[in-house]
Nucleic acid binder design. Structure first.
Lengths: 120, 120
DNA sequence: CGGTATCCCACGGGATACTG
DNA sequence: CAGTATCCCGTGGGATACCG
């Protein structure tokens, strides 16, 4: 188990969830994998401007935490597919929820910032 | 708007949610404020071993992001109360969900680690 | 009581180059 | 194609001490 997760265990269950899902790109990855299995390159293009190193680390951590599965096909050229575990799929509802919340939050803040801009 | 949140806007709504809620202690704070208004010291004792500086920063960010309200009572000794905004209260369901998910995750991983220990 | 100030460090994430 | 290697840096969070 990763250290941040272990540390969160001593605090509160919600901190455990954040320790597992809190990193940048992680929930985006889960979101795309909810639709279907992706190859590394697909994932990279899907989530946007993420460097391969950062994406690899996010995927490795999600793998360690039991959220994604990594399957290597010993072919040339190499092919690696990422998919969700049962546990990963169980995140469907909350990813959905957070996506909608984030969306409506963005709208709210857009309104606030246009108000605030008047006072700039 | 805070930079991490602004950056997340260019990525994906779920990243916005993570940018707002992803920090350590933040969701714990929200969780306690969902039950009732708390004073600073209460919050500090409630969430566990968090330093005042870290808790202050978490609260300030949550305030900036429109999740919590800070009310100062000009008394001696000073009293400051934190409560949730409407937006903050809208997090009720997801905090609940993440708490349960984190809880069951902890159990799962406990099982896995006891299995893994056999192989250590 | 409810914070700040100061210092410190680890780690997450980016940039760039390279490889099996 | 799917990464690694290397370097770098900002920031988040902790420790400790102090303040209005």
């Amino acid at each position: 188990m990763r250290d941040p997760v272990r540390a969160a265990l001593d605090v509160c269950p919600v901190e455990v969830s954040i320790a597992v899902l809190g990193g940048a790109w992680k929930l985006s990855v889960v979101r795309y994998l909810l639709t279907r299995t992706h190859r590394f390159g697909e994932l990279q293009r899907a989530v946007g401007e993420v460097t391969p190193r950062t994406l690899t680390r996010a995927l490795r951590e999600l793998e360690t935490d039991g959220i994604v599965t990594r399957t290597v096909y010993p072919e040339v050229p190499p092919r690696v597919e990422y998919s969700l575990t049962e546990l990963g799929r169980s995140l469907g509802p909350v990813v959905d929820w957070l996506e909608q919340w984030g969306e409506s939050y963005a709208k709210t803040q857009a309104t606030l910032s246009s108000d605030a801009t008047l006072g700039d």
